[in-house]
């Protein structure tokens, strides 16, 4: 079972994403809706991959990524950024990588997300 932590400030989004990923049967999913709590939760849960929303109140996805990168304990964990601004088409056209970051766009197609997760883990 691959461990996934979803960080997004919208609880219902997290709820359904967790449900949809768990349906596939390969993943253990935990969610975090309070971005200020994300780093602590990541250290505790020790996920194989983090799905990280960028635009969040309190602490932004970019700040969290920066913290993880600078911590020996977490710097190895791959991150998939979730963007709501760019369209899925634009993201896939750019090969999902923009400015060195791996992106997946909302609305999320589960199959595509699973494919991406499997690339990293």
């Amino acid at each position: 079972m691959k461990k996934i932590l979803v960080v997004d400030d919208e609880p219902d989004f997290c709820y359904f994403l967790k449900k949809n990923l768990e349906t596939i049967g390969e993943f253990e999913v935990d969610t975090c809706c309070d971005s200020s709590d994300a780093v602590v939760r990541i250290k505790k849960f020790k996920p194989d991959i983090v799905l990280l929303d960028i635009l969040m109140p309190k602490v932004s996805g970019s700040q969290i990524a920066e913290t993880l990168k600078n911590d020996k304990e977490t710097c190895g964990i791959p991150i998939i950024f979730i963007t709501a601004v760019t369209t899925p088409k634009e993201v896939s056209e750019s090969g999902n990588v923009i400015a060195g970051r791996y992106f997946i766009a909302k609305p999320i197609e589960i199959e595509e997300l699973v494919e991406s997760i499997n690339k990293f883990v």
Binding site: E10, F13, F16, K19, N20, A84, K106, I108
Partner: peptide, 9 residues
Amino acid sequence: GVILGGIEY
């Protein structure tokens, strides 16, 4: 986004 997730579910 929530609605779409819900639909998928």
